[in-house]
Structure formats: C-alpha cells, structure tokens
C-alpha cells in the first residue's frame, strides 16, 4: 500500500501539473480572444450544454467516482501491517526481510516447498504464520525450523508458530 500510495501521488502530481498548465494557457488564450491550442472549448461547452443531470452517463460517472472514493477510503483507513517489527531496545527488523528469511528456513525442511510466511504482532511478541506445500506430518519440523531462525534473529518471545502445509498435487 505504501508503494501504491507513492505511485498514485506521483500520478496525481503529474496530472495536476499538466492539467493546471493546460487550463492556464487555454484560459489566457480565451481571455486574449485567440484560438484554443489543444482543447476544443466550443465542442466541450456544447456537449455539457446538451447533457442533462438525469442522463445515464452522468449516473455512471457519479457511481464510478463514489465507488472509487469508497475503495480508496477503505484501503487508507484499514489497519496496515507495520513496515518493521520491534525487537526491543530501539532495535527493529524489516518485516518483509524477516518474512523472506523465515520462508527460506521453512523451505529448507526436506519435502517442504513454496513456503510463504506472514509475521504479525501479537502483544510484545511476533506471531508467524507459515503456508507451504508438503506432507502435513512435517508441520512440527517446519515450526521448529522457524523457531530456530527466530532465535537467531533474537526475536522477542513468540507464541505459537502457525503452520499450514498443503499436500502437493500429484501429476495425472
């Protein structure tokens, strides 16, 4: 979401800059009685003069703006995952990098592949959740490998390591 916000802000800035400059130039040309450069103002004015407030196109545009606004609002107001995890004493670990490292540890267990890890904060500790493919009987080994890696990272005391192993699909 942080990257999406930055990209969207860049787009908004470019649109404001280009649109504002175009509006200023066209308005100055109109004030001086000159012909417009890029925008056919007469055609726009005629189109807006023909379109009624109760037209379906106006309704579609309003619904699109409403849905877009509600979507952005929901995305911005929901609780975001923290970018870094507090390890105590002013020391933090970058969450994504920890997740990648724990995924590598889970994937190092024989017979386990495609491991993905999400780490959530639970009180003062962390709660890792592992999803991977492999024999469900290897869950304890995966949890042990993840716990060992957390110990190497000097992570604050963790609760249960949640492991979900999905059986591999057999080739037909």
């Amino acid at each position: 979401m942080r990257t999406a916000n930055r990209l969207a802000t860049l787009l908004l800035a470019a649109a404001l800059l280009a649109g504002g400059a175009l509006l200023a130039v066209e308005a100055l040309l109109a004030a001086a009685g000159r012909r417009a450069l890029l925008v056919d103002t007469a055609a726009w004015s005629a189109a807006l003069g023909r379109t009624r407030w109760d037209d379906p196109i106006v309704r579609a545009a309003a619904v699109a703006a409403l849905l877009l606004g509600l979507g952005i609002l929901a995305a911005e107001l929901r609780r975001w995952s923290p970018a870094r995890l507090d390890a105590g004493g002013g020391w933090h670990l970058h969450r994504r990098s920890v997740e990648r490292r724990l995924a590598a540890a889970a994937g190092s267990v024989p017979g386990v592949g495609r491991a993905r890890v999400r780490v959530r904060r639970r009180g003062a500790g962390w709660r890792p959740r592992v999803v991977a493919t492999g024999d469900p009987a290897a869950s304890a080994e995966v949890a042990f490998a993840v716990r060992q890696e957390l110990h190497r990272l000097a992570a604050p005391c963790t609760g249960r390591v949640e492991v979900r192993l999905l059986p591999r699909r057999r080739a037909p």
Binding site: V58, A61, L66, G69, I72
Partner: peptide, 15 residues
C-alpha cells in the same frame, strides 16, 4: 489520499 477519497465520495454522492 483520505482527503481525495472523501472529495470523490462527496462529489459522486451529490451528483
């Protein structure tokens, strides 16, 4: 983006 979203909701809702 919260302000932009609120403006879009207000505009879309009014229209």
């Amino acid at each position: 983006w919260t302000v932009v979203a609120l403006l879009l909701v207000a505009l879309g809702g009014t229209v």
